[in-house]
Structures are given as C-alpha cells and as structure tokens.
Amino acid sequence: MSAPLVSIVMLCWNRIEDVRESLNRIREQHYPHIETIVVDNGSTDGTVEMIQSEFPGVRLIRMYKNMGIEAYNIGFANARGEYTVIIDDDSFPAPNAIRRMVDKFEADERLGVVAFDVRNFYSYDDIKKEAETTDTVTNAPAANDYFMSFNGAGAGVRTSVLRQIGGYPEEFFLYNNELDSAFRIWDAGYKIQSFPDVVAYHKYSPKNRTSWRAPFYYTRNAFWTAWKNYPADMALRITIQLIYSCLYYSMEQRTTVYLKAMWSAFRDRGRLKGKRKPVERTIAEQLRVPWNVNFTFYR
C-alpha cells in the first residue's frame, strides 16, 4: 500500500525570507508523498515571484488582498492529501515530523488532529535533550484528563475532518481560530492530541508582534468563540466573565484596546449569524480554555 498523500498548507503575507527558508526545510522531509500549497495573502515584497522561480513544484494560490485566516480555507479546499499539515509562513515541521504524524493517524481513526510540539526555531535545538534526534524518544501523547486545542503554527489534521467542520472561522480574521475549530473537531467525535515527538519549528520573535492586533483580535474572538460554541447558560456566564476581564485589564494595563474589542464583538455579532452550534456539554466543560491568556499580549 502506498503512503497516503499529505498536503502542507502555508499562508503567507510579506515574509519572503521566512517563506523561502520554510519551503527549503520542507524539502528535507523524510516522508515521500507530500504536496505543498502556499496561499499568498496579497504580498507586495516579491514573495510570489520568489516562489514561482525557486519552488516550481509548489502550488501557489494568490489572494487579491489580505483576507486573514479565511485564505487558509482556500488552501484547505485545494488540498488533495488524506492529511493536511497547517503551518505559518515562519514555521515548518521537523524532518521526521510528517512521517511520525502519518503513523499516529494510521494507528487511530478517531484521531482528528496531531498537535505538533511547536518550538522556538532560534533556540530549541540547543536546549533539548539529544535523545530526540532518534526515534527512541517517547511517542506517547501528552497525558491529561481534559481536552486541548492546538497551535496553528504546526498541526496535522485529517482532511476529511477539516472539510466536515468547514475549516477555520473566516469571520475571525486573526487569532483564536484554532480554538474555535477545536470545539467543532471534538464535537464531531474526533480527538486532538499533542505528541512530543512530532515537532515543528516556529520563528517565535517578540519583534514580529504588533501592539494592538493580538489583544484586539484575541479578545473579540474570545467573545465570538463563546457565543458560537457554548450552551446558552455557559455562554452567558463566560460573556460576563469576559466583560469583567475587559474592564479589569483595561485599568490594569491602561489601554482601551480590550474595550474596543468588546464593543466590536457586540457591534459586529451579525457576522456570526447562522454559525452558532453549541457543542455537547461534556465537551464545553472538558475543553481547556485559558481565557486570561487573551489579556496578556499588550505591553
């Protein structure tokens, strides 16, 4: 039986050097049957031309403007692989990661997402134990009795599951899209598990983070995640909790960004029309959502 096809879907926007490096690293994958899809969100720095000239085997899809995470869905729709690997334009899987990921999927048909252990590109190899370079490293999933989401800088998803849940929530534009997807994946009866032996490298850099985008979108989308996915009583409780947090952290951090995000969540709630589908109560209770993290990215 031949190895199943794996589609790598990358979203990029004006990061020509990072994209070049990530695509070069993908060439080092040990797994033989891979297609790479890059969705360009309207780059103006020559990324498109670079991909066309240096990576002719890559399937390039061009957006006419920056559509945020909605563009991922275009990539997902074009994926022909049985499994889809989601990466950022500054992340890539370790050479053995996709082979290991496929093994995990093939061994468990209810496994919906293999959450990669996303590590810092600049320092991880210097601080890890040597054992990880071999296949002897533990391959058991992380042990916990609650449900988890995943990190979109490195995750493998069963493509059929991705289609079943409708991909990422395009109305979110940026941030918390993985969390929203996680609700729907668990609710569809599939598991999300993190495996420490499946590693992705991410160019984690504080300099890449602008000051208002992360707190704004994380906060607005936290409200929307609650409204879309929780049973009504839990959605109400979390909404009040989020209102409290917006007020508290606005005072603590002397910013209006959280109030603006809260206002935007209520004002633009129409974008969620037809998208609310409460998950099973057990899933709502079991999925770990660290709401406070949304309020830690400013200053």
């Binding site: 252990d117 601080i127 890890k128 134990k129 990880e132 490293v137 533990t138 058991a140 999933p141 992380a142 042990a143 916990n144 009795d145 609650y146 988890m148 993190s194 420490p196 770990r288």
Partner: peptide
C-alpha cells in the same frame, strides 16, 4: 507545568 505540558517539559536538558 500543567499535565498537558509534562512530556514537552521533560525534553529540556537543563
């Protein structure tokens, strides 16, 4: 660390 991070944490040499 929380339980979900134990395996990842065990990978540090230091």
């Amino acid at each position: 660390t929380h339980a979900h991070g134990v395996r990842q944490a065990e990978k540090y040499r230091a």
